[in-house]
Write a protein that binds this DNA or RNA. Structure first.
Length: 288
DNA sequence: AACATCTCCTGAAAGC
DNA sequence: TGCTTTCAGGAGATGT
């Protein structure tokens, strides 16, 4: 499931290839994946001829700045893959959108479960791209301080796990990294946000930034479907400490890792490490 | 207002 | 063995 580090990796692997290339033709195999404009035919017509200028990531959105003041935006959701292929290759199953580029290569948008979306926006149409306009701060933004993080946390009564997953609160976290952040911070996923102690909030902030940076360095987590912009898998999955490890021993205390539904998601946690006053600064979660 | 639940999708895995 | 059911989860829509 592509989260912030995976989307960042896709962007970094694709952008150098795409910059300067022109979209020569657009093939839409499944109109449902076009989120905007409403008419997929308009999407195809207006995208044809545009040049890839630049790109960046916002939350889990991939945003390409195109010529003509257009922005081409992708959200990969669960199983979406955006990758470049040189020359003509017959498309893999579930390839819903193909952009044939100058130079003969093509960008493929493949998404088994068809939750992902592509948007082509004119200036002023930002509200048409899902919740892009309502996203919370970027966790890795240098201007996003521990105090900013704590101030919003203190106002919330919900469980910390639901809050960290809420894109309007913080942009880019998903189920895998939230579980890892909570584990490293020794915080139980069901803890009410408003009841977190000061040092727990500091740990969450710090571990969040550390883990996201580590995962970007590892080029993302391939748990099932994720691939980068060249089709390569990530390397971070082996470094996950709790996610997907139900029944295995906690790497810190050897207690059996549990799995429980929290906020409608599978949550993996260590029942011994992640409870009140269980924090041991000499072992896990320490933030420098 | 702010939760929780349902929905969309397919394929892998579990259950019978 | 093989069919049926469950599960995975991002996020918008709907319900409480």
């Amino acid at each position: 499931m592509p989260e912030l580090p995976e989307v960042e990796t896709v962007l970094q692997s694709l952008l150098p290839i795409l910059q300067g290339k022109t979209v020569n033709s657009v093939k839409i195999n499944h109109p449902q994946v076009i989120g905007w404009p409403e008419s997929p035919l308009t999407f195809a017509r207006e995208l044809t001829g545009l040049i890839f200028r630049d790109g960046h990531r916002r939350g889990k959105f991939l945003i390409f700045q195109m010529s003509g003041e257009r922005r081409l935006i992708f959200h990969l959701r669960m199983t979406g893959q955006l990758f470049y292929q040189e020359g003509f290759v017959s498309p893999a199953p579930h390839t819903h959108l193909i952009l044939v580029l100058s130079g003969g290569g093509a960008v493929n948008f493949k998404d088994t479960r068809r939750f992902g979306r592509a948007y082509l926006l004119r200036p002023g149409e930002e509200k048409e791209a899902g919740n892009l306009e309502r996203l919370g701060p970027e966790p890795l933004d240098p201007d996003f301080s521990p105090n900013d993080f704590k101030d919003v946390l203190k106002k919330r009564s919900g469980r910390i796990k639901s809050l960290l997953l809420n894109q309007c609160f913080l942009a880019g976290l998903g189920n895998i990294y939230v579980d890892e952040i909570l584990f490293r911070s020794s915080v139980h996923p069901e803890t009410p946000a408003s009841r977190l102690r000061e040092e727990e909030m500091d740990r969450l902030y710090c571990n969040m930034r550390t883990i996201l940076r580590e995962a970007i360095s590892g080029r993302g987590t391939t748990f099932r479907d994720y691939r980068d912009g060249t089709g390569q898998a990530g390397d971070f999955q082996g470094l996950l400490q709790v996610y997907g490890r139900e029944g295995q021993n906690c790497p810190h205390c050897a207690e059996e890792i549990r799995r429980k539904k929290v906020a409608g998601r599978s949550s993996f946690f260590c029942p011994r490490c992640q409870k009140d006053d269980s924090y041991d600064p000499d072992s896990i979660g320490e933030c420098k």
